[in-house]
Amino acid sequence: MILAVIARDLRLALRRRADLAAVLFFFVIVVSLFPLGVGPEPERLREIAPGVLWVAALLATLLSLPRLFADDFRDGTLEQLALAPLPLGLTVFAKVLAHWLVCGVPLAVLSPLLGLQFGLSGEALVVLSGALFIGTPALSGIGAIGAALTLGVRGGGVLVSLLILPLYTPVLIFGAGAVDAAVNGIGVEAHLSLLAALTLAGVFFAPWPAAAALRIALE
C-alpha cells in the first residue's frame, strides 16, 4: 500500500514536470545570485560555497512543500487516504519519500555542477552531493509537518517558511559543515553521521505529528 502511495505521487509529479523544473531553476538562480552579490574572488566563493548551496537547497525545498498535501486536500483524496486502512502516518511517510525522490534527489544530483561555479574541488563536490542526498529526506520530513499545519491557511507559503526554517538549522549546520570540512581537508565522518541521524529521526518520526496536523485540518 505504501508503494501504491509513492507510485501515485510520483506519477502526479511527473505529470507536472513544470513545477519540478521551477524548483530546480530556483535553486540554480539563487546560487548564481551570490557571486553577483559578493564578488567573484575565488577564495571567498570557495569559503561561502557550502553555506550558500545548502541554504539554496533549503529554500528550494520550502518552495515545493505546499504541493505535498494541497492538491490532495483540494480534490478530496486526502480525506480518503485518512479513512484508508493504512495508518495516516505511514501514508505521510510514503508521501515524504516520494517528495524526496522528486525534489531532494534532483537537487543533490544538480549540486556538483553548481559547486563547480564556486570552485569546489572534486572531493568537496562528492561530499556536497552525498551530504545533500543524506540530508534532503530530513528536509522533506520536517517540511511535511509545516505543510500539514498550514494546509488551507492564509499566507501558507511564507508561514511555512517561518515555521520550518528554525527547525532546519541542525540539518544546515551538519550538512554545510560536512562540505566545509571537505574543503578544509578535515574529516567529514562526524558531520555526515550526525546528518544521517537527523535524517533517520526526521523521516521516521516526523510523519506522525504531520499526520496529526492533517487530521486537524480535515476536521
Binding site: P166, T169, I173, F174, L194
Partner: peptide, 28 residues
C-alpha cells in the same frame, strides 16, 4: 479550536527540537 491544536503540535515539535538545535549550534 484548530488554531489551538495546530499550535500545540508546533509547540511540541519545537520542544523536542530545542535540545537538538542547541547541541548543533554548540557544535557549529
Amino acid at each position: 479550536r484548530r488554531a489551538d491544536q495546530a499550535g500545540a503540535i508546533l509547540a511540541l515539535v519545537g520542544v523536542v527540537n530545542i535540545p537538538i538545535i542547541y547541541f548543533s549550534v554548540k557544535w557549529w
